[in-house]
């Protein structure tokens, strides 16, 4: 299964990014192979309007099964993510990626 995180860094111990559309990085973890990919999302800083759908489009192409984030996506981004058919969990904004993953495993995160 592939799990995507919105993060502030490219490492397992990085802080989660509370924001969805303007998240700095997207971290992709594949638990079947225990492998990591990180995608730099900082270019989105230059987008005046519509950062959410832009980031959602990246996720669409990455095809994760689950997204773990902080406050959750806005309306437009949510529409894209719904099309991508992934499950969204929120409330992990204050955690590190590792903690967020553990919390998800324990079923402690809220579904969006």
């Amino acid at each position: 299964m592939k799990i995507a995180f919105t993060t502030k860094g490219a490492k397992w111990d990085a802080q989660m990014d509370t924001r969805f559309g303007r998240a700095q990085f997207i971290l992709l973890y594949d638990d079947s192979t225990d492998s990591f990919t990180s995608i730099d999302n900082s270019a989105v800083e230059n987008v005046a309007h519509g950062a959410g759908p832009q980031t959602a489009q990246k996720l669409f192409d990455l095809k994760p099964n689950v997204l773990i984030t902080g406050n959750g996506p806005g309306g437009n981004a949510a529409t894209v993510l719904t099309k991508a058919g992934l499950k969204i969990y929120i409330g992990a904004g204050d955690m590190t990626v590792r903690q967020a993953y553990e919390a998800y495993k324990q079923g402690e995160l809220k579904a969006f």
Partner: peptide, 11 residues
Amino acid sequence: NSGKLVAHVKN
């Protein structure tokens, strides 16, 4: 005003 400027000030 735009999301970009607000994000910039906050960041």
